Computed example of a mutant assay.
Amino acid sequence: MNKGKLHLVPNILSEDGHYCLPAYLTPLLSGLKYFVVEEIKSARRLLKKLNASINIDQLEFWMLNEHQSEIPPEVMHRLKDGDEIAYISEAGCPGIADPGQNLAAYAHQIGAEVIPHTGPNSILLALMASGFNGQQFCFHGYLPNKQPLLGQKIQYLETESRQRNQSQIFIETPYRNQQLFQELLKTGHGETKLCIATDLTGKQEKITTRKIREWKNHLPEMHKVPTVFILYAGIY
């Protein structure tokens, strides 16, 4: 029996970001019938953008996200039977701060082939442009959004960065960006550096690194804009 194949397919970070996807994805995805997706609407939009002639109604979609975290039984059966399936993230790379890791783990468990495909990743793009330590870094996902936990977490990350010479990367729900930024200004040491990367790969992309004391005179516009924050108190 043929081994099943699981393709891990990145999605764009912004509406203007299709140029970041490799050209070979178009014929690959056009030849597949089965798709596990984090969000059906964004996956269908991506497929149509890559190939306007694709017949979406002939494709099969299953959801896998934070609300539907169980791998659909039919997906399990198809991988076991040797079918080829693509998992498409809602934005960025599958398995990186993304539920695709569960499907990849299952595919390995049954001996299916797992094939990652290149594409945009906001975490790495922000780190690349930050000027911070790219050999020692840690991604924390979302920080607590309530006090005093948020302030305590920022202090912890700053200490970790200083002691380990480590870049500390985190994100926030876009409508809470300003709240997080204000807490960083309030809690962080003035000499600690902060990189703010907004709308990565989009028309309004902006990546800026300043000391926290300098940010107090340069308030960024990032309300409801996808943003990556990187804190760095080390020496590099």
Rank of each mutant, 00 (worst) to 15 (best):
P148V: 04
S14H: 13
L149H: 13
V114I: 12
Y232Q: 07
C195L: 14
F35M: 10
L47D: 06
L29E: 05
P22V: 10
H7D: 10
L64D: 03
L59W: 02
K203Q: 10
H67M: 07
H140V: 00
P120S: 01
I196A: 12
M1Y: 13
G151F: 02
M63T: 15
L231Q: 04
H189M: 06
T26W: 00
S122V: 02
Y19E: 14
Q168V: 01
P148L: 05
M76D: 00
H7S: 12
P226R: 10
Q135N: 15
A112R: 09
Q101L: 11
S130K: 08
G111N: 13
A91S: 15
P144V: 00
Q155F: 02
F137N: 07
S14Y: 09
A52V: 01
P73V: 08
V37K: 10
L8G: 15
T227R: 03
Y142Q: 02
C195T: 15
R210P: 08
S89L: 12
E205N: 04
L28D: 08
L149C: 00
E70C: 04
A97D: 07
V114S: 12
Q135W: 06
R78A: 06
M222E: 04
E74G: 00
F181N: 05
M128S: 14
L180M: 14
S130M: 08
P99N: 05
D57S: 14
G131C: 13
G119C: 14
R164S: 11
G100A: 11
G92A: 08
F35V: 06
K153I: 01
P94Q: 10
S161E: 02
Y19A: 12
H218T: 07
K146Y: 05
G141T: 03
E84Q: 11
Q101C: 13
I88Q: 01
N177R: 09
L200N: 03
I12K: 12
E15D: 15
L25F: 11
A197K: 08
A97H: 06
S130E: 11
I154P: 07
Y106C: 11
Q204W: 02
N121Y: 07
G111Y: 13
I207Q: 14
